[in-house]
Design a protein around this nucleic acid. Structure first.
Length: 126
DNA sequence: AATTTGACTTACT
DNA sequence: TAGTAAGCCAAAT
């Protein structure tokens, strides 16, 4: 059940196989990197920003690979549409994501971002 | 090569 | 109001 990629995906951020064809992952990374400090966004919003609109699942997959990608992606700023830290268990430690958020001034309670609606950052408003 | 799973979301029953 | 179904695309088994 370990769906973790042993090898870097050929479409990883660092090595796009096609120069003129930005991969889905690259787009995700680009968007997530644009998330301001102390703000959060959702998988759906990122997916929409990348053109995949509702394929938010892929955003999560892309972020799963981001852990070993060079330009470290602030994946802790990406939560599901409810503001829940659904991906916390994919970090180095399950509590890392929450701690990172709290470090940035984002209050997290019960694995959910407090005032998520206010802290939500829409990629389209970049 | 086909099937299953996955950091999700929306819509229908 | 809650539960179930489908959609999305890619990687792993």
């Amino acid at each position: 059940m370990k769906m973790y990629p042993q090898n870097k995906p050929k479409t990883s951020a660092g090595r796009p196989k096609k120069k003129d064809e930005p991969s889905f992952f690259d787009s995700v990374y680009a968007v997530v990197r644009q998330v301001p400090y102390g703000r959060v966004t959702t998988y759906g919003a990122v997916a929409e920003a990348t053109g995949l609109r509702m394929s938010a699942r892929m955003v999560g997959w892309a972020l799963s690979t981001c852990a070993h990608v060079q330009p470290r992606i602030p994946a802790h700023r990406v939560v599901n549409r409810l503001g829940v830290l659904s991906g916390r268990h994919h970090f180095a430690t399950p509590t890392l994501m929450q701690e990172l958020l709290e470090q940035e001034g984002v209050k997290v309670k019960d694995d959910t971002v407090v005032d998520f609606k206010q802290l939500f950052w829409d990629p389209r408003s970049a």
